[in-house]
Each structure stands twice: as C-alpha cells, then as structure tokens.
C-alpha cells in the first residue's frame, strides 16, 4: 500500500489503570508522507502519552495504531515502526546515551545494521545538517541545553526517518537555537508532527493543526490562526 499513511491511529484510547478516567479516547489521526502537523495542547493534557502510544512505548488501551497500513500489535511490529519514525523527547538528557557526541548520534544507524564506518558517516552528515559539525568528539555532558537538543535531533535524523515526532521541542531553548530548529524542520523532507503549547512555533513549522480538548483530538481550521500584537524589548530578536 504505497498510499497508506506513515502513521494512522484508529479510535485509539489510553487509560493508565482500569477504571481510571482515560487520558484520551476515540482518537483518529493520520500522518501522511511529507505532511506538517502541529498539535496544540496545554500542559498535562496527554500529549506526551499520545506520542508514547504512537511509538509503542505505552500500549494503547483501545483502538489500533497502524504504520504504512499495517496494524502494530507486537513489540516486534513497533520495533519496525521505530526504524521509520523518529521521536524527539522533550528532555534531551533523557535521549543522550553516550559520553561522546559522535558515539551517541551513530547509535541509531548502528542499530539499523550499518557498518561502523557507514554509521559514523551518517552521524557526521546528520550533525552537519543540524549545524553541529565540529562537535563530534565533544563530551555530551559538557554541552549546553541548546547543543544537547541539536545533538538529539541529529541522533534521530541520522536514522533517516520518514516521519519525525517532536515533543515540546522549544521548551528551554534559547532564541538562537529555536530559530535554527525552525529552519531545520522546514528544510526536512520527512513528515513532521510537532506537539507543543507554543502556538507561534507550531504556526511556523506546521500546515495542519490539531488540539487536544478533554481527551479528544480536534482538527483546527488553520484560518482560525490569527496574529495579535504583543510587547517585549528587543523586537528584532527572533522569538
């Protein structure tokens, strides 16, 4: 099925414990190749849980997750899905596994079965793509927050995913890195699903918009987006 969506949720629901109120329920959602979706939701509305269910880190309580038209049922199914879809976690320190940058970025390509030389080449390319060339031998725990974010992004992109899911990518980012991230996301060919409560950022990297409202996913008309004035010093800075 060449036209099947990269990611397809059918009536997906999630409850943490039987009897508890669902975090979300009846979610229908599809991410097509190359599509740019922004998912807005306030803190604590279940955005991260939804991403975890999409990636098979948490099992859906009801409904079905599909990847390229195939229903994902077992851990092996989801392992396959994770080779094609990357998730960037909110906290970069959760995602960096190795003491040096190059080792960390090459971890995914090595898991894909590339030889060490190929994996290193892919890792270097991904680092260059996010503007982090020259950081290959740096120690990961000495990086700044923004640098860590870009290294984790390179780690995900080095696997050449068809789709990229981002969990609150701008939280704790400095303006310069934020600006760079917008540029990187807009020059990607992969489909991108950005989950954030930062409307300004979502608007700059997405074409379609959803919100989570009391446990349901609602599609928003892009036309409802509007500009409104706001005040702060240094208006020439990216924000």
């Amino acid at each position: 099925m060449p036209d099947a969506p990269l990611l397809d949720l059918r009536q997906v629901g999630f409850v943490y414990a039987p009897g508890a109120s669902p975090v979300f329920h009846g979610v229908d959602f599809a991410l097509e190749p190359g599509q740019r979706i922004g998912l807005f939701g306030p803190n604590g509305c279940g955005k991260t849980t939804l991403l975890s269910v999409m990636m098979g880190l948490l099992p859906a309580s009801s409904g079905e997750v599909r990847h390229l038209g195939r229903p994902m049922r077992t851990e092996a199914d989801f392992a396959q899905l994770r080779r094609g879809i990357g998730l960037l976690l909110q906290n970069a320190d959760d995602q960096i596994l190795f003491p040096t940058v190059l080792d960390d970025v090459a971890f995914g390509p090595l898991n894909l079965g590339l030889s060490p030389a190929q994996a290193a080449a892919e890792a270097r390319e991904a680092l260059a793509f996010v503007g982090m060339e020259g950081f290959e031998d740096r120690l990961t725990h000495r990086l700044s927050g923004g640098e860590k974010k870009l290294v984790t992004l390179a780690g995900v992109l080095a696997m050449r995913p068809k789709a990229l899911l981002l969990d609150e990518p701008t939280s704790s980012l400095d303006p310069a890195t934020r600006h760079r991230l917008i540029h990187i996301l807009n020059s990607l060919e992969a489909a991108v699903l950005t989950v954030s409560h930062d409307w300004d950022f979502l608007n700059l990297v997405s074409g379609d918009f959803y919100t989570i409202d009391s446990g349901r996913l609602v599609k928003e008309a892009a036309a409802e987006l509007h500009w409104h004035p706001h005040a702060h010093p240094h208006p020439d800075q990216p924000h």
């Binding site: 990636m55 080779r83 990357g86 596994l97 190059l102 080792d103 898991n111 894909l112 994996a119 696997m159």
Partner: peptide, 17 residues
C-alpha cells in the same frame, strides 16, 4: 533510557564506532 534506546532501534546487540 530504556525508552530512548528502543526509540533508536536498539535490538540487544551492541556495536561500537
């Protein structure tokens, strides 16, 4: 960390650069 490894396709075998 376990999740981050799964997300990047870790399958139990370890190769170094």
């Amino acid at each position: 960390t376990r999740r981050a490894m799964l997300l990047r396709g870790f399958n139990g075998s370890f190769t170094t650069l």
